[in-house]
């Protein structure tokens, strides 16, 4: 299954840095790998985006070279209560999403 898992604090102090940790269960098959003599079909997430109330916060363009079940961690800061949305897109267009509301105190 392709299940996003995100770790974001549900409440933060205004302007203070906090860590966002994201992971999605995904094989990240490059198409270069062989199993019992046959190439395993390529299946790759090539784009990750995090948006804060619709504004781009962080993006990643992934080529080959990212591990299976890709983990991405980064640091954000917010000035007001915000909904952060996460999107992982496979190169054939399939998308997976997660959202987290972060209350600013």
């Amino acid at each position: 299954m392709t299940t996003p898992r995100i770790r974001v604090p549900s409440s933060v102090k205004a302007g203070e840095a906090f860590e966002i940790r994201t992971l999605i269960d995904h094989p990240m098959e490059t198409g270069l790998r062989h199993q019992t003599g046959q190439a395993v079909a390529r299946r790759m997430i090539t784009r990750f985006e995090a948006q804060a109330d619709g504004e781009v916060l962080f993006t990643a363009d992934l080529r080959n070279g990212t591990s299976a079940n890709p983990y991405i961690g980064f640091f954000a800061r917010l000035v007001r209560t915000t909904t952060i949305t996460f999107l992982w897109r496979e190169e054939d267009g399939r998308e997976y999403r997660a959202t987290q509301r972060v209350t600013v105190t």
């Binding site: 203070e16 504004e55 781009v56 962080f58 363009d61 992934l62 080529r63 983990y71 800061r77």
Partner: peptide, 16 residues
């Protein structure tokens, strides 16, 4: 391997 881009709300120039 990859490119990571930072928007305005990013607090640190760091990625893991």
């Amino acid at each position: 391997i990859a490119s990571y881009r930072f928007g305005a709300g990013i607090a640190r120039a760091e990625v893991s």
